[in-house]
């Protein structure tokens, strides 16, 4: 998870902003309550979108309370409490964070990720039992991803497939998937979101990956190297822009078909404004690096 899925703050209503924060804090507190305070450090914006979308689909008006929090000890903030969906989103947040740390550890062997794995180990064991099917799928897809990386895959579609499938699985919150039509739409949203995140992240990281000699699909698809990076970026950008926008189009269409009522303003804001803004910032090469934390 990468934190690209954010609302466009200036376009949110104040109450929508408060609701978004309440979900964000709700996930954070839910993790702290159940898996220990340090697990809260893995909190990620992408799972907030998941929680808001699912709770909107469940027609659930979130129950909120004003509470204090370690990060903001002076002010009481609204927090979503007692929601199965928020608990689910925080579980997912932790599962994905664990796998990401494990991946980092394999690549770089830095102590931060090593320590993180140790801390999350017991929580992950619990979650693996709770979501045995989902975890098995995620692990299998991660293996596929590693294989694609070692075989130097040169197609962005192929390279993005495992992560897209992981997100597809994540968006299938079982209690809401009783209705097959809904499940299909949730799967489309998850798949395209995963694809969008993967491609955007690969583009964002290309300079670092060239420098570190790490795998990046665009190095092989477009033959990018240190010297032709700027020229390549120009030709790549149009194609990547098409793919990202197409995926966003699919997400927005499926959201429309889900006929969401509660919090639909926030979801529309994320899908039409926040993600598009994020993507355009990253596609514009050499733009300011500060976009990543905007809320």
């Amino acid at each position: 998870m990468f934190g690209y899925v954010l609302p466009e703050k200036p376009e949110l209503k104040i109450r929508e902003y408060e609701t978004f924060r309440a979900f964000y804090c709700g996930i954070c507190k839910s993790m702290g309550r159940r898996y220990g305070q340090l697990s809260r450090l893995t909190l990620n914006y992408d799972t907030v979108f998941l929680a808001i979308l699912l709770s909107s689909l469940a027609d659930e008006i979130p129950e909120m309370k004003r509470e204090r929090c370690i990060a903001h000890p002076m002010k009481k903030k609204y927090i979503v409490t007692k929601s199965d969906i928020v608990d689910y989103a925080s579980d997912i947040n932790l599962i994905l964070a664990y796998y990401k740390l494990r991946d980092n550890w394999k690549d770089e062997h830095n102590f931060l990720s090593g320590g993180g794995i140790l801390l999350l180990k017991s929580a992950h064991e619990k979650l693996k039992k709770k979501y045995s099917k989902k975890c098995a799928i995620i692990e299998e897809k991660l293996r596929e991803l590693t294989e694609l990386e070692t075989s130097k895959c040169n197609s962005m579609d192929k390279a993005a497939e495992p992560f897209a499938k992981i997100m597809e699985e994540v968006f299938c919150f079982d209690p809401l998937c009783v209705d097959k039509e809904r499940e299909k739409l949730l799967r489309v949203i998850g798949y395209n979101l995963g694809k969008w995140i993967y491609i955007l992240d690969a583009y964002d990281d290309i300079e670092d990956d060239i420098g570190n000699n790490s795998y990046n699909v665009f190095i092989y698809q477009f033959g990018v190297n240190k010297d032709n990076l700027q020229d390549c970026k120009l030709t790549m950008r149009k194609r990547i822009d098409f793919n990202l926008t197409y995926a966003l189009g699919e997400i927005s269409r499926s959201c429309k078909q889900l006929e969401l009522k509660i919090n639909s303003g926030i979801i529309e804001n994320i899908v039409y404004l926040g993600m598009l803004r994020k993507m355009e910032h990253i596609l514009k090469a050499g733009s300011c690096k500060k976009v990543e934390k905007s809320i």
């Binding site: 466009e8 376009e11 098409f242 926008t245 197409y246 966003l248 189009g249 927005s252 529309e268 039409y272 404004l273 598009l276 803004r277």
Partner: peptide, 14 residues
């Protein structure tokens, strides 16, 4: 389909 999404987004104030 690429253009439709953008038209929708711009219609929402993007």
């Amino acid at each position: 389909s690429y253009r439709n999404y953008r038209t929708d987004a711009y219609g929402r104030g993007y």
